[in-house]
Simulated assay, not measured.
Amino acid sequence: MKNQTRILIVEDDMIIAANISLQLANLGYEVIGIVTRGEEAILHATTNMPDILILDVNLKGTISGIEAATEIRKTHNIPIIYLTANSDESTFAKAKATHPHAFISKPFNKLDLQRTVALVAEQLKEGPTESTGNSESFEVLEDRIFVRHNGKMVKLMLEEILYIEADRNYSNIITPNANYLISTTLKHVETELTNPKFIRVHRSYMVNISKLDVVADSHLEINRKVIPMSKTFKEYVLKHLHTI
């Protein structure tokens, strides 16, 4: 199966986890891992970028499923499907605040799992539209932008920004000290951020050319981060290096 949807399972009951993995594999999905703790979930998800995260709300250990999801959401917009046997309002409210794509209540049957994952996978295939952009997520001024972060608008000077990375319907703004995930596509950011130092170098990356450390044939480097450079953008990048 080409372009299989990649799924990470986070469940501390290994019998349940193995059962989910087997069912998903039989349905044609690629299970990239099974982890049992919140700390492992954060590391695995942010390193391997699954398409979907199936996450138990109540994990054993120091970090709950909701806390793991909150941490992952700070830098990556990975669709989350929660598994939960706890239906109290407090837990639901906390889980809802992480903006999951779906909930599956335990105990669940094969059809529950199949339909829920299929619906989320279909949403991924649809992808962002060209006009996707949240005007309340960021505001561009002459030498700075304001981005919504942890419920408030935070000022970022343009000179602080190293690069901006696409993350499906979101964009991840990278600075030396922190990352800021905004609910706006990279195309929309490119349209709004007209400062000549910020240029598109790849369908998934926009860089601050004043921060470049290395320019190679097919990639760039900023602060030890290797960023791919598409052939279609190469001439444009080299031309704008003279404007730094």
Results as ranks from 00 to 15, higher is better:
A166G: 12
A166S: 09
A166D: 02
D167T: 06
D167K: 14
R168A: 13
Y170Q: 06
Y170T: 03
S171R: 03
N172F: 10
I173M: 07
I173G: 01
I174E: 05
I174D: 04
T175P: 05
T175C: 04
T175K: 04
P176N: 12
N177M: 06
N177K: 15
A178T: 13
N179T: 14
N179Q: 14
N179S: 14
N179L: 07
L181I: 08
I182K: 05
I182V: 11
I182R: 09
I182T: 02
I182H: 02
S183E: 13
S183T: 09
T184W: 07
T184G: 02
T184F: 02
T185G: 00
T185P: 08
T185F: 08
K187H: 11
K187W: 10
K187V: 13
K187T: 15
H188K: 13
H188C: 07
V189W: 11
E190P: 07
T191A: 05
E192D: 10
N195M: 05
P196C: 06
P196R: 06
K197N: 15
K197M: 10
K197Q: 13
F198Q: 02
F198H: 10
F198N: 09
F198G: 07
F198S: 05
I199K: 11
R200Y: 10
R200T: 08
R200P: 12
H202M: 09
R203S: 14
R203W: 06
S204A: 15
Y205Q: 02
Y205P: 04
M206L: 08
M206Y: 12
M206T: 00
V207G: 02
N208I: 14
N208M: 06
N208H: 13
I209A: 04
S210H: 10
K211P: 00
L212F: 00
D213I: 01
V214F: 02
V215E: 03
A216H: 11
A216I: 00
D217H: 08
D217M: 01
D217C: 00
S218F: 00
H219G: 01
H219N: 11
L220M: 08
E221F: 04
I222C: 01
I222H: 09
R224T: 14
R224D: 15
R224L: 07
K225S: 12
K225Q: 12
V226M: 02
V226E: 11
